[in-house]
Amino acid sequence: MKNPKYFKVLVSLLILTILSAFVVRLNIGLKAASAIILALFMLKFLGVAFYFMELKKAHVFWKSAVIIFVLLFSTIILVGL
């Protein structure tokens, strides 16, 4: 059974990870860099949860719970920095 879906997700996650490490080297200020890093973090987190953990197939309650958590966490961190 061949399914390139997981491989595409992995490549995307690795690219996002490398991008987040490069953002630190940019001279764009702490707030802007943090916002970009947190945005990339959210994408990676949701990528793992929805594809690798197959949350995409789960009830809307679980999908919403994960999205709310990740949004809440990132917002609190960004405001707190």
């Binding site: 990870t17 490490a21 990339l40 973090f41 990676k44 987190f45 961190i77």
Partner: peptide, 10 residues
């Protein structure tokens, strides 16, 4: 994924 950006990058 939670730990990496905060501890190593931000």
């Amino acid at each position: 994924l939670l730990l990496f950006p905060l501890i190593y990058l931000i």
